[in-house]
Amino acid sequence: MRQDSGGPAGTKLGRRRVLALGAALLVLGGSAVAVVRTRGYAVPAGRTLVVLSAWQLAVVEDAARRIAAPDRPGDASIPTPDALDVAGFVDAWMAHMPAKVRRDLGRFLGYLEHLAPLACAMTTRFTRLGPDEQDRVLSAVEASSSDLLRAGFEGLKALVFMGYYRDPRTWGLVGFDGPQVGRPAEGWR
């Protein structure tokens, strides 16, 4: 099994086992948070979190950058998820979700950060991977053989796109003229 050069030697977890372990953690409630290291993450200055912890925020921010990545890199007219504070939106939205759903999503973030890279033979946590590697990890989770992990990915994706496409600055990208209610005279675009 190929190993990430920066990772500790001897990681021999097979992809299937990691997937199975991740899914089991989600199902059994053996909190993924319990097995993840939560040190080394800092809440950005000036940011107050509602329900996410510092490490969860970091995972959501990185995932959002990849999930809502631009199709024309470098095109300044495409708003970035950071500029729209997609992660902040996800944090606020999750606060109103049923507690069980919130807990499951939290566990999925733990899986994404620590176990999903392992399943792709990478021994570095998700938030320390480069964009291409992060894409590989996300693609693997999206196509996982575990229904539960795929559902976790779809849930995170839905939240990220809610945070992204809720913003009138993105509507022009997709040719949407926006609500009629409150529409400015010059249009939303």
Binding site: R66, I67, A68, A69, P70, D71, I78, L138, E142, K157
Partner: peptide, 8 residues
């Protein structure tokens, strides 16, 4: 999907 292909 997600990312650039999704936006396209």
């Amino acid at each position: 999907g997600f990312g650039a292909a999704h936006m396209a």
